[in-house]
Design a protein around this nucleic acid. Structure first.
Length: 260
DNA sequence: ATGGTAGGGCACCTA
């Protein structure tokens, strides 16, 4: 089984890139962030023709998350538990496994936070604390959990192209890394880092400046597996191919594979 | 320290 996560930065603009990638890679689950479209515009029919069911929660202009799946999801939730948040950043569902069991897939678009002294950073901290509480419940309900998405946090300096330049800045601060560590202490593991110990591999590059050309990136898109899922994981990689296309998203897909 | 580009939507906001 293959699970992928991709911040597409406008599904309208990136639908062709997404369609090609799905055809070439055939993930069982594809989790999307930053749809930037209302639900009535979501291209369900086009994706169904490619062999994917869709669940989604969107809004005009900003945010929006979706899960595409080869088989339909059950028990879909489109709101962060215990939080009244108009921003569409959370979607989860149960996906059937060949064993007859199910796994819980959770897809998030974590708030950017803008800067540590910003009001948006207070929102990021509150949102992340709600996510941690929600994941504790999720892990109690089902040992087979995969939490994916754009976390807008680099786990460590190895995930930063220039740690000195980014030291203490948004996405790279100690407080954010501690938030992520606390979340992972509930029983979630960085699947990419489990299989890859080398640096200079990123999932996002700024459109501005040298950006992708100079590999000035961050690894902020993560696939976090519960211990049961990590035991079944066989590999994880970042696919930079879509970032090289004309008019790319600033993020590229991250993939994990499981012997399930 | 600042600004650079992109998407949405049409003045800026978010990233």
């Amino acid at each position: 089984m293959k699970i992928a996560s991709w911040n597409v930065n406008s599904l309208r603009v990136r639908l062709d890139h997404l369609s090609d990638w799905l055809n070439d890679n055939q993930p069982d689950l594809m989790c999307l962030q930053e749809l930037k479209m209302p639900d009535q515009d979501f291209p369900s029919e086009a994706l169904l023709e490619l062999g994917y069911h869709s669940v989604f929660t969107g809004q005009k202009t900003y945010n929006g998350v979706a899960i595409l799946s080869k088989q339909p999801l059950d028990n879909v939730v489109t709101d962060m538990p215990d939080m009244d948040d108009p921003m569409r950043r959370y979607i989860a569902g149960d996906y059937p496994l060949a064993s007859g069991q199910s796994m819980r897939i959770v897809n998030v678009y974590v708030p950017n936070g803008q800067a540590l002294d910003s009001d948006k950073f207070i929102y990021k901290r509150e949102w992340f604390s709600k996510l941690r509480a929600a994941m504790r419940e999720t892990l109690q309900d089902n040992p087979n959990v995969v939490l994916v998405g754009d976390f807008n946090i680099t786990p460590a300096d190895i995930d930063v192209h220039d740690p000195k330049r980014w030291a203490g800045k948004i996405h790279c601060s100690d407080i954010e890394r501690l938030m992520l560590q606390k979340l992972m202490s509930e029983g979630l593991f960085d699947t990419y880092r489990h299989f890859n110990t080398d640096g200079d591999h990123f999932s996002w590059w700024d459109y501005r400046g040298a950006g992708y050309r100079a590999n000035e990136g961050l690894r902020i898109d993560l696939i976090l597996s519960s211990s049961a899922m990590l035991n079944a994981a066989t590999g994880s990689h970042i696919d930079e191919a879509p970032r090289k296309l004309e008019r790319p998203s600033d993020h590229t897909p991250v993939v994990a594979e499981y012997s399930l």
